[in-house]
Design a binder for these strands. Structure first.
Length: 426
RNA sequence: GUGGGCGUAGCUCAGCUGGUAGAGCUCCGGAUUGUGGCUCCGGUGGUCGUGGGUUCAAGUCCCAUCGCUCACCCCA
């Protein structure tokens, strides 16, 4: 036994996804991708590594993500590169670089690992996986509403229809700036009523003060001005347009005026789907509009909206609710008597795979008694055990035993056996 | 970065006021010379996370350190 001290372990926050979990992952991923396809989105695949500058310029220099959570390092030529902490920046970069956004709309989705150097906890990892989508070139609230309805459909398709939808509008950059100043002076006037945490937030991200969970601050927060009341006219009309469509579509929501994004590029519509079953990390899907970003990183003025979901969180919810599906074993397990039988076993199984690519045949390896081979056939969940021993080779009649049901043991010649195993479900 | 909880067999865990490391499951073998599951019997598997200290004696007490985990911050 190797001692723990010289055994290499995975990096903190980088999880292995073991065979017992991959079926749920696959189910979540295929369900989400099918829904995206149903709304006419096209897949785009993007690098995990980008120039650090891209994230600094899009996410915001002073955000936590850029300041202390990125995996950044110098390339051999001295460039600063970073593992992507989110997917939007790279998608926008690719859209500009390849001319995808040139006066036409795009509905794109992507999937893959993201990296943030945070302290891991339930539902939060340093390498985590997202599926997200970005729509470019559409400025009206109709696409906002469609994206919200689509993400709602995704969650329902996973059996997670009981999450709640929260929406808000962050208004225009100008309105937000004016509001932020107003907010800062409000809280400065009540400085001594704030706790240390809120005082710190007032310096870094004033709108976050509204998020404080401290009940003693509720009075000061209640009396604070609301961004909703100070939206610019266009943003107000946009938001009202959004709620009209959601109402007409029968999609329930709550307006949460304290719903703020941690990334600088958001404006106007923001939304979140929240579950109460995940502890502190309740957001399973979040998105919003970012009309200024494309221009900000060098493209033409292009309206855009996007969302991302955390696969780990969805997998966790689905697993808690429905358990893990039993892994289906092979259709047949070939028990081999000796070396000569091994040749027969592979000749037979290859012919079955030729004829029926969906057939799942496991040929025993590693020797051992018939007893132990049968035991393994049973343990791996095989439906049938096929015995290839001396007497079978002599007679040309192979024994097939049903391991899961009451079918009587049968004797088949080679062609019959191949037909039998190729038939799939018996 | 900060705080709480936890580190004993592959897994889940027991181990009392310090006194020779245990159980269940798994795995391997046997009962059944070529037939799994159920049962019974036997076996493999541990520097008790790591390093130091106290003691005649440490899984147990003390200190440090590493790891896991939950929470804060922040976020998917």
């Amino acid at each position: 036994m190797t001692s723990d001290s010289n055994r290499i372990q995975s990096i903190r926050g980088f999880a292995d996804i073991l065979p017992s979990a991959t079926p749920v992952w696959r189910q979540v991923e295929t369900t989400l991708q099918a829904t995206l396809a149903a709304y006419g989105y096209d897949e785009i695949r993007l690098p995990a590594l980008e120039h650090t500058e891209l994230f600094a310029r899009s996410i915001g220099e002073v955000t936590d993500i850029v300041e202390k959570e990125m995996y950044s390092f110098e390339d051999r030529n001295g460039d600063s590169l970073s593992l992507r902490p989110e997917g939007t920046a790279g998608c926008v970069r690719a859209g500009i670089q390849h001319g995808l956004l040139h006066s036409k709309e795009q509905r794109l989705w992507y999937a893959g690992p993201m990296f943030r150097h945070e302290r891991p906890q339930k539902g939060r990892y340093r390498q985590f996986h997202q599926i997200g989508a970005e729509v470019f070139g559409l400025q009206g609230p109709d696409i906002d509403a469609e994206m919200i309805l689509m993400t709602g459909r995704m969650l329902r398709a996973l059996g997670l229809g009981d999450v709640r939808l929260e929406i808000n509008s962050l208004g225009s950059a100008e309105a937000r700036r004016a509001y932020r100043e107003e907010l800062v002076s409000h809280f400065r006037a009540h400085w001594e009523a704030l706790d240390a945490d809120a005082q710190r937030r007032l310096e870094t991200n004033p709108m976050r003060v509204l998020d404080s969970k401290n009940p003693q601050l509720q009075a000061v927060i209640e009396s604070a001005p609301s961004l909703m009341d100070r939206l610019d006219e266009a943003s107000r009309a946009h938001f009202e347009g959004l709620t009209r469509i959601l109402d007409a579509a029968g999609q329930p929501y709550t307006v949460n005026p304290r719903l703020v994004r941690g990334l600088d590029y958001y404006g106007r519509t923001v939304f979140e789907w929240v579950s109460d079953a995940l502890g502190a990390q309740g957001t399973v899907c979040a998105g919003g509009r970012y009309d200024r970003l494309v221009e900000q990183i060098g493209g033409n003025d292009t309206p855009a909206i996007g969302f991302a979901t955390g696969i780990e969180r969805l997998v966790s919810l689905v697993t808690e609710r429905f358990g893990v599906p039993e892994v289906a074993g092979p259709d047949a397990y070939l028990v081999v008597g000796d070396e000569a039988a091994m040749g027969v076993a592979h000749r037979l199984s290859e012919r079955v795979r030729d004829q029926s690519p969906g057939a799942r045949i496991r040929v025993h390896s590693g020797g051992g008694s018939f007893k132990s081979q049968f035991k393994r056939a049973d343990r791996c969940g095989a439906r049938y055990a096929v015995v290839l021993g001396e007497s079978e080779r002599a007679s040309g009649q192979y024994t097939v035993k049903d391991l899961r049901g009451d079918e009587p043991q049968r004797s088949l010649d080679e062609n019959e056996l191949i037909e039998f195993l190729s038939a799939g479900q018996h």
